[in-house]
């Protein structure tokens, strides 16, 4: 039996005076999946999430979230969803426990279930000991954990997270994702998150939608999208490029062999096993570079630029040493 989709978005747009922040996007999110909206800063991710949460009215198009239309019935939408914002929105002067109590009241958690549910959530995110301290004494990671506990407190069908790990160190980042996964698996919650970290999307999402300038570029599982590019590739500079070219073409594990300036590029399957064989066979090779295909390449393919220009990760300049 096919599960009904958690979210159905049709031609959703948001215009701010002259700016088309979100431009006719259409998407479906499957119930129970972890879905990532990946894109650089300014791509329209936060605007999209704000519309899906019933916080921002769309300019045109429609979005059905958990069975309710965001334009027509935003309050019902908000009952069904939990939101963790990018900036912390827990009240500093209240304790963790008090923050959760207020949330329980606002979301209509039945009185007889409040205490137990709050205690349960605190335990799951490991904040039971500090529940009565004021949040202003919490670390960044603790605040995020409290927000996640709060987001799921009222048994939402969908949990939205806007850039959940921005500003957190890598260890905390990994821990936060452990909590998110534990919570969502236990409760069967659909998780939709936005991020500009490729690795986050690749590692934790079942499916990814790449967004840029308010438009959806591509949707699919990370594996599918990367595979569509042909997988990993090698770049060889050789004394005799033409000879190398024809040699590469004869090999079984290479595809899409082509010239790139004076270098020869080819897609290669199972590079760990096949690269040594390749190098044994070829004679004119001066240097080899391996490029592990990632979502960044998918992004470059469709937009012509890297998702993170400042880190200079684009293209085929990755060194072998950086491969895991």
């Amino acid at each position: 039996m096919k599960k009904s989709p958690a979210i159905v978005i049709k031609n959703l747009s948001k215009h701010f005076k002259k700016l088309r922040a979100v431009d006719r996007i259409s998407l479906e999110v499957v119930s129970g999946e972890v879905f990532a909206l990946l894109g650089p800063n300014g791509a329209g991710k936060t605007t999209t999430i704000s519309m899906l949460c019933g916080l921002l009215m769309p300019t045109s198009g429609s979005a059905d979230v958990a069975g309710f239309d965001v334009s027509k019935d935003p309050i019902s939408v908000r009952k069904m969803i939990g939101v963790v914002f990018q900036q912390p929105s827990v009240d500093d002067l209240l304790s963790g426990q008090e923050n959760l109590e207020m949330h329980a009241l606002l979301y209509g958690v039945p009185a007889e279930r409040r205490k137990g549910r709050i205690a349960d959530m605190l335990r799951l995110v490991g904040l039971t000991e500090r529940k009565d301290s004021q949040v202003k004494e919490y670390s960044g990671g603790m605040r995020k954990r409290l927000e996640i506990a709060r987001g799921i407190l009222h048994w939402p069908k969908i949990l939205f997270l806007d850039e959940p790990t921005v500003g957190l160190d890598p260890q905390t980042r990994a821990h936060i994702w452990q909590y998110i996964r534990k919570m969502s698996q236990r409760e069967g919650t659909t998780v939709v998150f936005t991020t500009h970290y490729l690795e986050e999307a690749e590692q934790f999402a079942d499916r990814v939608a790449i967004i840029d300038h308010g438009k959806i570029i591509e949707v699919g599982t990370p594996k599918e999208m990367v595979a569509s590019l042909g997988g990993d590739s090698v770049r060889l500079s050789s004394k005799n490029p033409k000879a190398t070219l024809s040699q590469l073409r004869k090999m079984k594990f290479t595809t899409n062999v082509r010239m790139d300036g004076t270098a020869v590029i080819a897609n290669i399957s199972k590079p760990q096993q096949n690269l040594p064989r390749l190098l044994k066979t070829l004679s004119n090779v001066d240097s080899v570079e391996i490029h592990t295909a990632s979502l960044n390449d998918v992004f470059i393919k469709y937009t012509g630029r890297a998702i993170r220009e400042e880190s200079g990760e684009g293209g085929f300049m990755e060194r072998i040493m950086n491969r895991k």
Partner: peptide, 14 residues
């Protein structure tokens, strides 16, 4: 400014 209001605005309350 401190974004506390966001939590309240996103809640299903009028």
């Amino acid at each position: 400014k401190l974004d506390f209001l966001k939590e309240v605005l996103v809640a299903p309350v009028s």
